[in-house]
Nucleic acid binder design. Structure first.
Lengths: 110, 110
DNA sequence: CGCAAGTATTCAATTTTTTGAATATATTGA
DNA sequence: TCAATATATTCAAAAAATTGAATACTTGCG
């Protein structure tokens, strides 16, 4: 119940390191949506979506707006889309690991 | 032992969701460094650094260059610094959660 | 009030991640 | 070849994340 004064960068990345949460964030790109709209769009159970959204809320990525029995969520940090898009633009150069020539040099003991 | 053809965005964020790995990435901002340089700079054990670097390697963020007994690591995806810097620029607005006025509107059953 | 729709929370079992310890591998030089 | 330096890997115990199930809460309406 403490007021989350400052969210650490690792906490933010942890929140993003989850497929369903990324789907939710993507679904909120065009503005706010309530859980009952997200549910059929992404095909998850209601409780599951609430759980994941609560993680996004904890790190301050989304904000809620109550409208009757419904709660509309919206991303309150547009910067996360910069982050998401940058992450997806990363090249898939994951492997090669070109081990170059030994490159003789003065070797000092660490 | 498979060739990591494509790294998912969640895998990338998972790799970033760790304080020591972020420290390593930050330390590599100014270019390549070997484990024995990272060790004293960050104050972690050798094996620990190797473990964390191996995670960064798996997602293709760093590349190695052997020079004698040493292995120099460098970030091969400069874009991650865009991501890191963007993440840190996020406002700490994590809490307020201004629950607005109910805002009467036509309510449809989901 | 009582019910139904919409949403949130709690709990437990499973899975994954973390991390220290031990050990293995690679390279260089005597 | 042996020893020393540098790095990587393996393993197991602890900690944390995931997720389904059950349940609680909130709102509006009759």
């Amino acid at each position: 119940m403490s007021i989350p004064t400052q969210i650490s960068d690792t906490d933010l990345f942890r929140a993003l390191a989850h497929p369903a949460r990324l789907e939710i964030l993507d679904f909120l790109r065009d503005g706010e949506h309530c859980v009952c709209e997200i549910m059929p769009a992404l095909g998850y159970r209601q409780a599951y979506i609430s759980q994941q959204i609560s993680v996004l809320r904890e790190v301050g990525l989304v904000q809620e707006r109550r409208a009757g029995a419904r709660v509309y969520y919206r991303v309150c940090e547009p910067t996360i889309y910069v982050i998401l898009d940058s992450a997806r633009k990363l090249k898939p150069v994951a492997a090669p690991l070109s081990v170059n020539a030994p490159q003789k040099e003065t070797v000092l003991v660490c």
